[in-house]
C-alpha cells in the first residue's frame, strides 16, 4: 500500500515531517490534585494525578522516596470497533509500566519519602501514538499537581514507511506493520528516557528516525511549556498578590 503519495503527502494529507495538531487543557478532573487532557489529532487522552498522599498498602512504602503508580486504561469506545477488553490485559499492563518508568525518571521522588503518587491515564479516542499522548498528558497533570520534577518529559513517535521517515504515525500508518519508534525525552537536560521500537530498521536509518521523533518531542515540549505558563499566569493573577 502507498503511504506516501508521489506528491509527498501522507494518507491524512500531512507532509512526512509534519505533526498532527496538538491541543492540551489543564484541569479536567476537579477532584484530582492535577489533571490534563491531551490531544494529538484524533488521539485524545485524559490524565489525572492524585497525591503525593499516604501509601495505601503499607508494605509497599519506600522510606527514601515516593512510590509512583500508574494505570493505563483504554475506554471501550476509543477504537473503531467497540471491544470489551478485560482490565489488566498484557498490552495495558506493559504501557502502564512504560509510562510509570518514564515519569518516575523525571519526578523528584526523593523529596517525598513514604508517600505515593497515583497517575491514571485513560484513552478516550485512539488513533495511533496513544503511549506518547499518555506520557504528554501525564506530564501536564503532574506539573498541574505541583509535584517537583527534574524536567518535563515529552514523547513522540516516528516511523519509516515507503522509504520515508514519518513523524507522529496515526492508526492506519501504525497498523501498516512497519517500524514504529517511540521516543521520550527530557528536553532541557537533553536526555532520552524512553525508546521503543516495533519491527526492524537499518541502523543508519534508525538514527534519522530517532532524530525526527526527538524534534517532534521538542515541539511538543514547547507547546506544553506555553500551556503551563499560561495556566500559572492565570492562577497567579486570579489569586492576587
Amino acid at each position: 500500500m502507498e503511504y506516501v503519495s508521489p506528491e509527498g503527502l501522507r494518507l491524512d494529507g500531512r507532509r512526512p515531517m509534519e505533526m498532527r495538531q496538538i491541543r492540551a487543557e489543564i484541569g479536567a478532573v476537579s477532584k484530582a490534585d492535577g489533571s490534563a487532557v491531551f490531544e494529538m489529532g484524533n488521539t485524545k487522552v485524559i490524565a489525572a494525578v492524585y497525591g503525593p498522599r499516604e501509601v495505601q498498602n503499607r508494605s509497599q512504602q519506600l522510606s527514601d522516596k515516593a512510590l509512583v503508580r500508574c494505570e493505563y486504561n483504554m475506554a471501550n469506545f476509543s477504537t473503531g470497533d467497540r471491544m470489551r477488553k478485560p482490565k489488566g490485559d498484557r498490552r495495558s499492563t506493559e504501557i502502564s509500566l512504560v509510562i510509570r518508568q518514564t515519569l518516575e525518571e523525571c519526578i523528584l521522588t526523593h523529596l517525598m519519602p513514604r508517600s505515593q503518587i497515583d497517575i491514571y491515564v485513560q484513552v478516550l479516542q485512539a488513533d495511533g501514538g496513544t503511549r506518547s499522548a499518555c506520557i504528554n498528558a501525564a506530564t501536564l497533570a503532574l506539573a498541574d499537581a505541583g509535584i517537583p520534577m527534574r524536567d518535563l518529559v515529552t514523547s513522540c513517535s516516528a516511523g519509516y514507511l515507503n522509504s520515508t521517515p514519518l513523524l507522529d504515525l496515526n492508526y492506519v500508518e501504525d497498523s501498516a506493520g512497519g517500524p514504529d519508534v517511540t521516543v521520550g525525552i527530557l528536553p532541557k537536560l537533553d536526555k532520552v528516557t524512553l525508546l521503543q521500537m516495533d519491527s526492524k530498521l537499518p541502523i543508519d536509518i534508525l538514527e534519522n528516525v530517532i532524530q525526527l521523533a526527538t524534534e517532534g518531542c521538542k515541539a511538543i515540549a514547547n507547546y506544553i511549556r506555553e500551556i503551563l505558563l499560561e495556566n500559572t499566569k492565570e492562577l497567579e493573577y486570579r489569586r492576587g498578590s
Binding site: 506539573a143 520534577m149 524536567d151 518535563l152 532541557k188 511549556r225 500559572t232 499566569k233 492576587g240
Partner: peptide
C-alpha cells in the same frame, strides 16, 4: 483588569 496589576517576570514553569 486583574492581570494588568501583576508582573509576569517572576513566573516560571518546570525546567525554566
Amino acid at each position: 483588569s486583574l492581570s494588568s496589576k501583576m508582573n509576569s517576570d517572576s513566573l516560571v514553569t518546570v525546567a525554566d
